[in-house]
Design a protein around this nucleic acid. Structure first.
Lengths: 221, 221
DNA sequence: TGATCCATGTCAGCGAGCTGTCAGGCCGGG
DNA sequence: CCCGGCCTGACAGCTCGCTGACATGGATCA
């Protein structure tokens, strides 16, 4: 689960990163509005935590620009100025929830869970591609009806690719989302993982785009 | 089984807690509407017992906000003002059942079982899986007809997994629902508990999904 | 008060299987 | 033909969950 933190105060940002990572999120942090807008507009996050007091571009303006561009990523607004009027402004601009500083990490995590869950909506938890079926509820994959045992990492990789089917996913993006570390240590761990998944699910599911990454042919492909 | 009690009268709240705990529930109590809404929106409970006369935010308003956010947790409304009109309001707002004060604890427990069962999709309070039978009302388990003595915690664990069969349940979710919100200190208590339940009920009931959690194979599997 | 039992948490050891690394082979593109 | 990216089999280290043994602590009863 990838989360973008937009916060210019280094100390608070560091606290957030630590807490979120401990809760299992993959965290990226930016400190100014322009950069935040760009990242939020071009990358995929499960949620964005947005501080309102920013240099560069005001947080509310950033949020409004995302919404104007049809970005539906759930946004949790964070601010010291917790007046009621501002809260209304935030909700009007399209925020999904609002948290005044100072806050307890637990509460932030709870609200984050809440908005992520809400935005995940009610998509079916079963995805079928060819004769392969993914069941998120059971964390189980079946090929032609018979269950296949995937290890945790294999499952995460396959699940991520299937969730983003129809799009090329780079090795770097994969390792970020599977391992949650930015360290691009040279290793062929991802390649090995892809190989193992292919052996279990059949070679046609994941295609290689030499030089770019991997893709699961999707509905729009 | 985790239950949220929303009640501002300390005496009644204490009574409820005592009765519910005796019946094997993990109980959390809040006394005002804002807090109730937040908890109900961000935490997972098997059911919520909601008093209508609240400070902060009216009980009905809280309930409506949960439902607007697609929270389907079963809610049992509790109120002194037991007029027929109000009852209709409660049901309209999305309550699952309605209990006028004063009430007898037994009746509350019965209604609670009923709405929990209904929300889990079971018609009766007896659930059979293979040759194992769960009787939620009597808190008894039988294997091939002969009763098996489960300790309170063992029963809670087995019961929670059975109620959510067909879904992978993480160790974390289990310990939350068995012990209440205690900090997840590293401990293998859940693993030990699973082992003990398996020894008594047979090893096939609970499957391990390494790295994810446990699952009781369900009807929809 | 002390003996005893039962429920439950803790700990250490164990084993299966997960996973990163590496070496070598394959293959497509220049 | 070579090069760089990708694949694959082997393997060693390690993680996770299981299990038996023990400690603790509350309840019961003499």
């Amino acid at each position: 689960m990838r989360v973008l933190v937009v916060e210019d105060d280094r100390r608070i940002a560091a606290d957030l990163e630590r807490g979120l990572r401990a809760a299992g999120y993959v965290v990226e942090t930016v400190g100014d509005g322009e950069e935040a807008w760009f990242r939020g507009d071009t990358e995929d996050y499960a949620a964005i935590i947005l501080d309102l007091g920013l240099p560069g571009m005001d947080g509310l303006a950033v949020l409004k620009r995302w919404r104007a561009n049809d970005r539906r990523i759930p946004v949790l607004i964070l601010t010291a100025r917790a007046s009621w009027a501002e809260r209304v402004d935030g909700i009007d601009a399209g925020a999904d929830d609002y948290l005044p500083k100072p806050f307890r990490m637990e509460e932030l995590l709870a609200r984050l869970r809440s908005i992520v869950r809400r935005s995940a909506g009610h998509a079916s938890s079963v995805i079928s591609i060819g004769d392969i079926t993914f069941d998120e509820r059971q964390m189980r994959v079946t090929v032609r009806g018979s269950p296949v045992a995937l290890s945790p990492l294999e499952y995460r990789l396959a699940s991520y690719l299937v969730l983003h089917r129809g799009r090329v996913v780079s090795q770097h993006e994969l390792s970020e989302n599977i391992y949650g570390q930015e360290d691009a240590h040279d290793s062929n761990a991802v390649e090995v993982l892809v190989g193992r998944v292919r052996k279990k699910l059949g070679g046609e599911l994941i295609e290689t785009r030499r030089g770019f990454g991997y893709i699961v042919p999707g509905a729009d492909a």
